[in-house]
């Protein structure tokens, strides 16, 4: 007799060994909060959206110097408004995509499908962060260029630089910005790595079967 069949015999006969819950227990349980991974992901994605929106919007309202700098960069009002509209449209697009994928997550799907849908959500949050980091990188580099060119004190020093020095300065700015962006990315990867370690492992196990 197979080992599992011995277990099966016991398994099917052990109907009463569990401490039975009463209907009262169940009514209490229905109103407890879930601690599912989907809920955690939902909170994180909302936090991501709010964080990046705040980061992009608050300086615009609170810092006059930032506004002045922006005015220097965007001498043309149309360009400024176009960029603002496009960036909010992109945020809205991400919110829409996130909402759509969250809606598809259902505990009644099969195990593999459920995992795929959760991983899809995680991918959208990932693209959103990549988008923000890329925009942040470009904005930092372009912003520091205009900052230097338009700042009378630095601009005078800068005019005395030879071409090689100018190139080195911008390379340094780019490298430091990249490093900074890389650190945020790493931090982000670690958080999701820990959170989704088990899910990724189980998904790989199932996907491996289908090769």
């Amino acid at each position: 007799m197979d080992e599992l069949d011995i277990l099966k015999k016991d398994w099917q006969s052990s109907q009463k060994v569990f401490q039975q819950k009463s209907s009262k227990d169940f009514y209490i349980m229905l109103h407890k909060k879930s601690s599912s991974i989907v809920k955690t992901l939902l909170y994180i994605s909302i936090a991501e959206l709010v964080f990046w929106i705040c980061l992009n919007t608050i300086p615009l309202f609170s810092s006059d110097s930032y506004k002045e700098q922006l005015n220097m960069v965007y001498k043309n009002d149309f360009v400024f408004y176009a960029i603002t509209v496009i960036s909010y449209a992109i945020i809205l697009l991400f919110v829409y995509l996130l909402y759509q994928t969250y809606k598809t997550i259902s505990a009644t799907d099969n195990v593999k499908k459920l995992m795929e849908n959760i991983l899809k959500t995680r991918k959208i949050i990932k693209y959103y962060v990549i988008y923000n980091l890329a925009v942040g990188f470009i904005a930092m580099v372009v912003g520091s260029y205009y900052g230097i060119v338009n700042n009378p004190e630095i601009a005078t020093d800068f005019n005395n630089f030879n071409q090689a020095q100018v190139i080195i300065t911008f390379c340094l700015i780019a490298v430091f910005t990249l490093l900074f962006v890389g650190l945020i990315w790493l931090f982000y990867r670690i958080i999701y790595g820990i959170l989704l370690r088990r899910l990724n492992k189980n998904y790989k196990e199932l996907a491996k079967l289908e090769v």
């Binding site: 601690s35 989907v38 195990v111 459920l114």
Partner: peptide, 18 residues
């Protein structure tokens, strides 16, 4: 049958160990 699905999905994927 429906319980098997939801139950296993929770144990394997949704549940975060407290």
């Amino acid at each position: 049958t429906w319980m098997y699905r939801v139950g296993l999905n929770t144990a394997i994927t949704l549940y975060r160990k407290s």
